[in-house]
Design a protein around this nucleic acid. Structure first.
Length: 668
DNA sequence: GTAGGGTTAG
C-alpha cells in the first residue's frame, strides 16, 4: 500500500474513495451508520491504530471522525500518537476546521504541550469563546495561572464557563482571595453564576475560612434553587465545617435526600477537622450501616483518625476493608496506612504498606521518613532520604521537616545542620517557622543552647509560643535555669494561657528555693485562670479503649489498680528504683509527691493492661503529654520485671521499652 | 467544567 501522504496527493484519491463507497457514510446523517459506530467503538476502547487503518477512507469523507480519534487519544496518554494524528490531520487538510482545531488544541492542553496549543490558537482565523476557553483551561491545568489570566484578559468575549474556569483554577491553586475577586467581577459584569460557579466559590470560602462570604453564597444557592445539586450541597457542607461551624454543615448533609459517598466523606472529614476522631469513627460506622461503600478518600480520613486515636485494632480493621476494596494501592491510602501503623507503634507494618505501594509520591516518601523519625530510627531516615534522592523523587518542605525532626530526635546534630543548609541552598526551599522550630530543638537538645536561642532571634519568621517552648524544654534538660526563665517568659508573653510553661517556671524557681517567685507564678496562673492540663493515657485492650486520668480516683477499677501498683512499685524498689521527686511540683511533702507519681496516668494504664492482657503480650499506651522522667525510669523497670514489651506513644514520639531499657536511649 | 482525602515542628 502507498504511504498515506502519497495516496492523499495522488489523483486517484477520488477513485479509491468511490470504490469504497459501499462502506462510506455521510457526516450530515443523523443516524449513525454501522461503520461509524464501529469506528467510535474502536477509538473509545483504545484501538486507535486499528481504527485508523480500517476506516481511513471514511475519515477522508467525514473529517469529523478525526474528533473521535482525537478524543480517544487523550486517555491513551501517548504524546507520539497525538503528534502522528496531528500530522495526519494536516495532511488531510483539515487542520483549519474550527471544530477539529479546537479538539486538537484540547489534546495538546491535556498533554501540557502549551506551545503547540498556542501555535494552533495563533493560526485560528477567528477565535471564538470555545477556543479561548480550551486554551485557558490548558494553562490552568498546567498550573500556569498567569498564562491563563492573559488568555482570559485578551478574550474577545467570555461566557459563564470562562469565568468558572478562572474561579476554579484559582481555588485549586489555593489563591482563594483572587478567585473570589473573579466572582465579584463576574457578578458586576452581569453574568449569572451557575452550579459550577457556586460550588467553586464555596470551595474558595472554605479555603479562606470566610464564613460570612460562605453564607452569602449559600443564600444565593437557595435563591437560585441550586441547593438540591449534590455538588453544591457537599461544597456547602464542607465550607461550613471548614469554617468551624460543624452544626450548620451537618444540617446541610441531613437535608440531602440521598447521601452520596462524597457527602459521607465531607461529614467524616468535617469531624476530623473539628478535632473529633471519635466522631470520624462513628460516622464511618453509620456510613457502612447505611449501605454506602467507602472509597479511597473515606479510607484516608478514617485511617488518619485511627492514627490520632492510636487504636491499632480499629486501624487494622479499616486496613482490611481498604484491601478488600482494592484501595491500598493508592498513594494517599498508603500514606495514611504508613502514618497509622507508625503512630500505633508498628513500624514494620508501616514499611510493609510503603513497599507494597507501587506508585510512590512525595507524600508517601515523607510519611515513611516521618514514621521512622517517630520511632527514633534516625539512620534509617537518612538512608531512605538518600534513596529518595538517588531515585530522583521530588522533595518538598515537608520532606525536610520529617528529616530535621528525625535528626533532632536522634541527636544527629551535624546531619540536621547539613540538611537545613541543603534545603535552603540546593533545593532553594524557604524554611518555615516549623523548620526553625526543628532546628531549635536539634541544637538545644544536643546542648548548643546559645546557638538555639540565636536561631530564634535571627530568623526571619515571627517566633510563636511553640518555638520558645522548645527552647524552654531544651534549657530545662540541660539545667540552664537562666535561659529557661527567659524562654518561659517569652512563651507566656505570646500565649499567657500556656499551663505547661507556668509549671516549668514555677519548678525552676522552686529548685532554686525562690519560694516568693513560686507563689507569684501560682498567682498569675490563678489570675489568668490557667489550669494545668491533666495527664491522660489510653490503652486499647481487645478493641476497647480505656482512658486513665492522673490521680483519678473515680475510675471504676481504681481500687484494684492501686493495690496492683503498690505491689509492683515495692518490687521495683527492691531492684533499685528510686522515685524521681523532681518530676513533681515542689510544694508538697515527699509522701504526697510519691503518691502523685504513682498515679501518673501512664502508670495506671500500664498496670491496668498488665492485669488484663495475657503474659508476654506487648502493651501499647498513648499519652497526651510527654512521658515524665520518673515514669520513663519506672517503665524500664516494669518491662524487665514483667517481661513485657511496653510501647508508649507520648505527645512527641515513641518509646519502646524492653528488658529494662528504652529505644530512645534516654534521649528525648 | 463543579464537591470530599494523605505526609508535617512542640
Amino acid at each position: 500500500m502507498l504511504p498515506l501522504s502519497r495516496r492523499l496527493t495522488s489523483a486517484n484519491f477520488k477513485a479509491s474513495h468511490l470504490l469504497s463507497s459501499k462502506t462510506s457514510f455521510s457526516s450530515s446523517s443523523h443516524v449513525l451508520s454501522r461503520p461509524t459506530v464501529e469506528f467510535i467503538g474502536l477509538c473509545s476502547s483504545g484501538h486507535l491504530r486499528e481504527a485508523f487503518e480500517r476506516f481511513k477512507l471514511e475519515i477522508w469523507s467525514d473529517p469529523n471522525l478525526f474528533s473521535h480519534l482525537i478524543q480517544a487519544c487523550i486517555p491513551k496518554n501517548s504524546l507520539p500518537l497525538a503528534r502522528q494524528l496531528h500530522s495526519l490531520i494536516v495532511i488531510a487538510g483539515c487542520s483549519a476546521d474550527k471544530f477539529i482545531a479546537n479538539h486538537l488544541m484540547n489534546l495538546y492542553c491535556e498533554y501540557g504541550e502549551l506551545d503547540q496549543a498556542e501555535a494552533l490558537f495563533g493560526r485560528m482565523p477567528r477565535r471564538n469563546v470555545m477556543s479561548c476557553n480550551i486554551l485557558l483551561k490548558g494553562y490552568l491545568k498546567a498550573d500556569n495561572l498567569e498564562g491563563a489570566r492573559k488568555v482570559f484578559e485578551e478574550m474577545p468575549d467570555r461566557n459563564v464557563p470562562s469565568w468558572n474556569a478562572m474561579i476554579t483554577g484559582y481555588v485549586q491553586s489555593k489563591r482563594n482571595g483572587e478567585a473570589l475577586s473573579f466572582f465579584s467581577e463576574m457578578h458586576k459584569e452581569g453574568f449569572l453564576p451557575d452550579v459550577f460557579t457556586v460550588s467553586s466559590v464555596l470551595g474558595g470560602c472554605a479555603g479562606l475560612r470566610a464564613l460570612y462570604a460562605g453564607r452569602q453564597a449559600h443564600s444565593y444557592a437557595v435563591k437560585s434553587a441550586f441547593e438540591p445539586n449534590m455538588v453544591v450541597a457537599s461544597s456547602l457542607a464542607h465550607m461550613y465545617m471548614k469554617c468551624g461551624s460543624l452544626g450548620e454543615g451537618e444540617a446541610v448533609i441531613r437535608s440531602m435526600p440521598v447521601k452520596h459517598v462524597v457527602a459521607w466523606n465531607t461529614l467524616i472529614a468535617g469531624k476530623a477537622l473539628n478535632g473529633s476522631p471519635e466522631g470520624v469513627m462513628d460516622q464511618y460506622n453509620l456510613m457502612k450501616i447505611a449501605g454506602q461503600v467507602p472509597d479511597k478518600i473515606t479510607f484516608v480520613s478514617v485511617l488518619s483518625a485511627c492514627s490520632d486515636l492510636a487504636t491499632l485494632g480499629q486501624g487494622q480493621q479499616v486496613h482490611a476493608e481498604a484491601m478488600k476494596r482494592g484501595a491500598t494501592s493508592a498513594a494517599g491510602v498508603a500514606s495514611s496506612l504508613v502514618s497509622m501503623y507508625s503512630r500505633c507503634g508498628c513500624l514494620e507494618e508501616s514499611m510493609k504498606a510503603f513497599s507494597e505501594c507501587k506508585e510512590k509520591d512525595v507524600v508517601l516518601w515523607s510519611s515513611i521518613l516521618a514514621a521512622h523519625g517517630f520511632h527514633g530510627k534516625g539512620e534509617k531516615v537518612i538512608e531512605l532520604f538518600e534513596e529518595m534522592q538517588e531515585k530522583g523523587i521530588e522533595v518538598n518542605e515537608i520532606t525536610f521537616l520529617s528529616l530535621l525532626y528525625a535528626c533532632s530526635h536522634c541527636g544527629l546534630k551535624d546531619k540536621g545542620v547539613e540538611f537545613f543548609t541543603m534545603m535552603v541552598e540546593r533545593y532553594e526551599l524557604k524554611p518555615r517557622l516549623e523548620h526553625y522550630t526543628c532546628m531549635v530543638d536539634l541544637l538545644g537538645r544536643s546542648g548548643s543552647l546559645h546557638e538555639a536561642e540565636e536561631t530564634i532571634r535571627s530568623m526571619p519568621a515571627k517566633p510563636d509560643a511553640v518555638i520558645w517552648k522548645t527552647l524552654l524544654f531544651a534549657s530545662m534538660v540541660h539545667k540552664n535555669t537562666e535561659m529557661a526563665k527567659r524562654a518561659a517568659e517569652e512563651v507566656l508573653r505570646v500565649d499567657p494561657q500556656d499551663s505547661a510553661s507556668y509549671v516549668l517556671l514555677s519548678n525552676i524557681h522552686a529548685s532554686a528555693k525562690r519560694w516568693k517567685d513560686v507563689s507569684e507564678v501560682r498567682k498569675s496562673m490563678r489570675d489568668q485562670n490557667v489550669k494545668k492540663e491533666p495527664g491522660i493515657s489510653w490503652v486499647e485492650i481487645k478493641n476497647r479503649v480505656y482512658q486513665f486520668i492522673m490521680l483519678d480516683k473515680s475510675h471504676p477499677h481504681y481500687a484494684e489498680i492501686n493495690i496492683y501498683l503498690k505491689e509492683l512499685i515495692a518490687e521495683m524498689k527492691l531492684r533499685g528504683y528510686i522515685p524521681d521527686m523532681g518530676s513533681v511540683l515542689h510544694d508538697m511533702d515527699d509522701e504526697e509527691k510519691e503518691h502523685n507519681l504513682v498515679h501518673h496516668s501512664e502508670k495506671l494504664a500500664i498496670a491496668f493492661a498488665l492485669m488484663n492482657t495475657p503474659a508476654g503480650s506487648p502493651i501499647r499506651v498513648m499519652k497526651n503529654l510527654r512521658v515524665c522522667r520518673d515514669c520513663h525510669v519506672a517503665i524500664k523497670y516494669i518491662s524487665e520485671i514483667k517481661a513485657r514489651q511496653i510501647i508508649v506513644r507520648d505527645s512527641s514520639r515513641f518509646h519502646h521499652f524492653k528488658n529494662g531499657s528504652c529505644s530512645c536511649g534516654d534521649y528525648w
